[in-house]
Amino acid sequence: MSVIIQIKNVSKSYWRNSLEIPVLHDLTLNVKEGEFLALMGPSGSGKTTLLNLIAGIDRPSKGELNVAGTDIAKLNESGLAKWRSASVGFVFQFYNLIPVLTAFENVELPLLLTKLSKSERRKHVENVLSIVGLGDRIHHYPKQLSGGQEQRVAIARAIVTDPVILVADEPTGDLDKTSAQEILTLMERLNKEFKKTIVMVTHDPHAAEKATRLLHLEKGDLV
């Protein structure tokens, strides 16, 4: 299998006033296509920062970052936005659904950036909502759904454009045990059945067991 995420000597620091706060140190990592990678580590170890860099929503301070065949560190903001919409799906801990939109409309959002017709968009949205098991909830608003259902809508939104990579930041962190299990099963299915490369940050060892590869980060270094 080919390498889909190539991270070479990447460092990331944040600045607070004039004080530099290093988060990732000279990190090198390759992720193969179809892998389900779990990133674990204590709070502040840089897991989410690494995930943000892979998803193209943050930029490295230095190093090379090639994801899905694109050197994303060199893209400008609009180029990066286009790349994200086509190549990566993002699942958040707190779902981040738009409260005034129905499940259908939330999932349809990324497709508004494509040239698909209304009927094609409908077909795609209904298809992914049925994959996540919410075919009967398409007209429900987020507040009318349970946490687990909201997260499934968020996953549907992440995969509706058929991205090659799915990144998930503690997707079960805000869920009860049963709902968490359902989400993990769904993600495992997306990896095995739909061949999605998944990078997941988690604190939960049980969630990490679903991954095909597990890495630990501590103080910005892979251990």
Partner: peptide, 16 residues
């Protein structure tokens, strides 16, 4: 603010 971050993550541009 958080929703705008979501829109940006999904690929919505400054224009949108």
């Amino acid at each position: 603010t958080r929703e705008y971050a979501v829109f940006k993550t999904l690929g919505f541009s400054a224009y949108h």
